[in-house]
Design a protein around this nucleic acid. Structure first.
Lengths: 217, 217
DNA sequence: CGACCGACCGAACGATCGTTCGGGTGGCGC
DNA sequence: GCGCCACCCGAACGATCGTTCGGTCGGTCG
């Protein structure tokens, strides 16, 4: 009999990354199953033994990517919390947490550029159930970053409004995610240079609550 | 006779923005000409009297959006140059230019969110000629921003390497463009708040050349 | 009035889309 | 030996895709 149902169990990582590489360049709707079959060296119907549908493939790429990012981030956050419990008055660790999170993000980004591009392109073509699952992972990840930012602000700029903290965390996300977004430019320096700049700009930039500015008119 | 050739001349702005709104949500390949015809209240073949092809529509959206952004930016840059010519030792105007550019970008972004989302989604589905034209506009726009950043760095952190300036300009782009990218969250504050934060973080953040950091390990 | 023109339409074209079906391997347990 | 199962294939399905064709309508100019 048939009854293929869902073989969501597990799909080889190399197939997933090959598909992601193609989708990163052409987009989800712009990439056909026949394209994917050709570049993975398989036949069209052979592909369907590794995932239930094209939409399922998109979900698997998203799920695996965000899970990796999230587990790294939560591990760093938990290490920070344990450290703080041991020495409650830590004012330097909080900057270290922020720096470690940025480093982990940029490193992962530079090593899985194609998958990351797929993650940014959006969740819309997914079923409500899959979309919700991915959205929850995104939320948890951005919560970790917001937490780190709020801890930093609590030390270096106490009394900052919650909304301002979230806005600044969002801008930090912007710097971290944009880099590999527009063109595929490799002339922007090493991931290490990038991390240094992002960390420096953000931490120093947040210290001045109201900008010391002159207006031109 | 037929001979429709290319009626690239001009297509009504309202049609373009309606199409952009749909493409912003579903992507280029995910939006069919029939979808576009339905939401613009026209018939399928009626649409083809306003642009030559679907790809041409994408080009028109890109061309019009980047041209608007670019003309605003170049106007601000030229005003700054004229000002500097009159009073050569201007150290405050350079920050003003940066602030004005950010303000213009965020304002335009918040007023044409759909079009901007289309602009970010990529140039790949376009013909070589159209792709080149759009890429040139993008380049000119990012050149203006890089120029402003390099002027700022020349005053406040002289001797900064060219590659570092470009990297920092890129990060500024990240903060400006990411905001409306992921979720459609309106709870991040007004465009004015956003501009203030971006300007503050960037200008203050660039002042410290090497980050004053402690490492956690 | 008749010629012309831009705006618009319904119907259809060939191509390509995601997916399914029936069958064919080769290896491992019994 | 036989049966099972993961893996893979060619061929086809209905649907939808971008685009084209021939024609209608309402105005405007001569």
């Amino acid at each position: 009999m048939s009854a293929p149902a869902r073989q969501v169990a597990h799909c080889p990582d190399d197939i997933l990354s090959q598909c992601a590489a193609l989708m990163a360049r052409q987009g989800y709707h712009g990439t056909s199953m026949r394209d994917l079959a050709r570049t993975t060296g398989r036949s069209l119907s052979g592909l369907y033994h590794h995932f239930a549908s094209k939409e399922d493939l998109l979900y698997l790429i998203n799920e695996r990517g965000f899970s990796s990012l999230l587990s790294n981030a939560e591990r760093l956050r938990d290490a920070y919390r344990a450290e703080v419990r041991r020495r409650p008055a830590g004012t330097s660790e909080v900057a270290g947490l922020l720096r470690d999170l940025i480093t982990a993000h940029v490193d992962y980004f530079s090593r899985h550029r194609s998958e990351m591009r797929v993650l940014m392109l959006g969740t819309q073509p997914m079923s409500p159930a899959h979309g919700e699952a991915v959205r929850r992972l995104k939320q948890r990840y951005s919560d970790v970053l917001s937490y780190a930012v709020s801890e930093y602000m609590a030390v270096y700029a106490p009394g900052t409004a919650r909304s301002e903290v979230e806005r600044k965390a969002w801008l930090l996300f912007g710097m971290m995610n944009w880099v590999f977004g527009w063109y595929a430019v490799d002339e922007l320096g090493s991931p290490r240079d990038l991390t240094t700049d992002i960390f420096g700009i953000f931490t120093q930039g947040c210290l001045a609550s109201s900008p010391v500015v002159t207006t031109s008119e």
